[in-house]
Computed example of a mutant assay.
Amino acid sequence: MTLLHNVPSHVLVSAVRYALGRRTYIVSDTVQAVSGQWSKLNRADKTVIVTDVVRAFKGGSTGMPQDAEQWARLLRIALDDPHLGLATREAQTINRILEGDIYS
C-alpha cells in the first residue's frame, strides 16, 4: 500500500469510522495508514479516533477477531503516545480492552 503524505487528518478520522465494523481488508489498511500518520495527527483527531475505537470494542462491533487485533494495535499506539494525554480512566479502559476484558 502506498501511503500518501499530507493527507488531511479528517480524512483519516473518516477512514477509521468507515472501517470500524467492516469485515474486509480495509481494516488493516486503515490501521496501517493511521498508524503511519499518528505522530502528525492533532490531539483532537487522535481523541476522536480513540473514542470511536473504544466505543466499537464496548459495543462488540470491531468486526472479525483479526480486525479487533488491528484496532487493538491502534489502541496500543494511542496508549503509548505521551502527547495524547489520556485520562487515567481512559487508559484503564484501553488496558482492559488490550487484556481481553472488553472484546468484540
Rank of each mutant, 00 (worst) to 15 (best):
R22W: 11
D45L: 08
R55D: 07
Q37R: 15
G59N: 08
T93A: 03
S35Q: 10
A19K: 08
R43K: 15
V48Q: 14
R89C: 00
F57D: 01
T2K: 14
W71G: 01
S9H: 15
I77E: 09
Q92A: 09
Q37N: 10
H10F: 12
T88W: 01
T62I: 01
E99P: 00
A78S: 04
A78W: 08
N42V: 12
P82H: 15
Y18E: 12
G85E: 14
D45H: 15
I94H: 02
D45N: 15
H5L: 12
T24N: 15
V54Q: 02
R55I: 00
V54I: 01
W71R: 03
W71Y: 01
D52G: 03
G21C: 05
V16K: 10
A33N: 04
F57Q: 01
H83W: 10
E99G: 06
E69L: 06
L12A: 09
G60P: 03
T62H: 04
R96V: 02
D101Y: 06
A56L: 06
I49Y: 09
G21Y: 06
K58H: 08
T2C: 05
L75P: 00
S28M: 10
D29M: 10
R17S: 08
P8Q: 00
P82Q: 11
R23P: 06
G85C: 12
D67R: 04
L86N: 09
S9L: 14
A68K: 02
K40L: 15
V11H: 11
K40P: 01
R96I: 04
P82L: 09
R23I: 11
V13Q: 10
V13D: 12
I94N: 04
E69C: 02
D81Y: 07
V54E: 00
T51W: 00
L79C: 01
H83L: 14
A44G: 14
Y103I: 01
L4W: 03
V50K: 06
D52N: 08
T51N: 11
R17A: 06
R76Q: 14
K46L: 14
L4K: 10
Y25H: 11
S9K: 15
A68I: 05
Q66T: 10
H5I: 08
V27L: 04
Q92P: 00
Q66H: 10
V31Y: 05
M64F: 10
V16H: 06
I77K: 13
F57G: 00
R89H: 05
D80Q: 14
T30A: 12
G100L: 03
L20G: 03
S61C: 03
I102A: 01
D80C: 02
V27S: 02
D52A: 15
A33H: 03
L75F: 09
S28N: 10
S35R: 13
I97A: 02
T88A: 14
R73W: 04
V54N: 00
R96P: 01
I94W: 02
K46S: 13
E99F: 00
H5V: 13
L74T: 05
R43C: 09
Q32G: 09
